[in-house]
């Protein structure tokens, strides 16, 4: 029996004539990492804002731990924390002062504030910078402080809206480690991202949304499987040989790059493939194996859905 902590049913939201969410449905399992994946403007932030009780949906139901995010927002607020796209830290205060201030605003006792502040500074490797003003922090440090603040009141669900947007690759890796650590402690993490690699690395379950609708949902593996198997990519220098090869082989042909992609299949079929080329005196300039990435999944799904829509329209 699945134990879901977030449940969203037929959520709709529009601003004037512009529909942002168009009947969104999903469930998030307790203690899992859930990634909402989509391009800019797909409706990711709006979803998070509704779940975090900041705005109200036009229709549909969203509950967290059984509480309605609109009618029982006070109870929901006790269970969640939100870290928005822009670090909401106070630049003029030190890291420690930021934590203490937010701890007080979370209505923790002064002993708890002190204890949690020290713990979190340590956990997020900010102890050395604790007495420095946030103004002097790097982007990665700000993000870490921001997340540390969101953990002060030990929430059950953490919303991270694009937690690594604008970070350099190393800070991004660190952030990933950190998020994985948090999940190990049993917190449910709801993150939005436009990076497929990020969802692939972190999420137990991925929901792909486009124009306010869920287009696909599943584990990273499931999504990749939809796209199919590993491919062999053959690239040719010689235009004539490329033409000849593309007539002989059945695969996806890229004219511009003079490349043919074919499902890899078994060693036997691979040998046949290369033999066929050899018999015709064709030598590919390079042979690559490529596993499908989530990018492929994403491109494939969104373009397919758009085509369907234009057919119906």
């Amino acid at each position: 029996m699945k134990d879901s902590i977030i449940s969203v049913q037929n959520l709709k939201k529009s601003y004037g004539k512009h529909t942002v969410l168009d009947g969104l449905n999903f469930e998030v399992e307790r203690g899992s990492i859930f990634a909402l994946l989509g391009e800019n403007g797909a409706g990711k932030t709006t979803t998070v804002r509704i779940l975090a009780t900041l705005i109200q949906a036009d229709s549909g139901i969203a509950t967290i731990a059984g509480y309605d995010t609109h009618r029982e927002s006070e109870s929901v607020k006790q269970k969640i924390s939100l870290t928005g796209q822009y670090a909401s830290v106070d630049e003029l205060l030190t890291g420690e002062e930021n934590l203490v201030m937010m701890g007080r605003l979370n209505h923790l006792s002064s002993n708890t504030v002190k204890k949690r502040t020290a713990e979190l500074l340590d956990q997020f490797e900010l102890t050395n910078a604790a007495k420095k003003r946030v103004k002097t922090y790097s982007g990665g440090m700000r993000r870490r402080l921001d997340i540390a603040i969101s953990l002060l009141a030990s929430p059950q669900v953490i919303f991270l809206d694009e937690p690594t947007t604008g970070l350099d690759p190393r800070s991004r890796r660190n952030m990933w480690n950190l998020i994985q650590q948090l999940a190990k402690n049993g917190v449910t993490i709801f993150l939005t991202t436009q990076y497929l690699e990020e969802a692939d690395q972190l999420a137990d379950k991925i929901a792909v949304i486009d124009s306010g609708k869920m287009v696909e949902e599943g584990t990273a593996e499931e999504l990749k499987r939809m796209i199919g198997d590993e491919k062999v990519e053959l690239t040719f220098d010689n235009a004539k040989e490329f033409q000849q090869a593309s007539e002989l082989l059945q695969g996806q042909v890229s004219e511009v790059e003079q490349r043919i992609s074919i499902p890899a299949g078994s060693p036997e079929s691979l040998r046949k493939l290369l033999n066929t080329l050899h018999e015709h005196g064709i030598e590919p300039s390079s042979v690559n194996f490529r596993k499908p990435t989530l990018d492929d999944v994403f491109m494939d799904i969104t373009s397919r859905k758009r085509k369907e829509q234009s057919v119906h329209a």
């Binding site: 975090a52 900041l54 607020k77 939100l82 870290t83 909401s88 605003l105």
Partner: peptide
Amino acid sequence: VGGLFERLRSMPLLPSS
């Protein structure tokens, strides 16, 4: 414009503080 206001509103307190 920064995120402070949003965060306060997602917390169980009177953001009017």
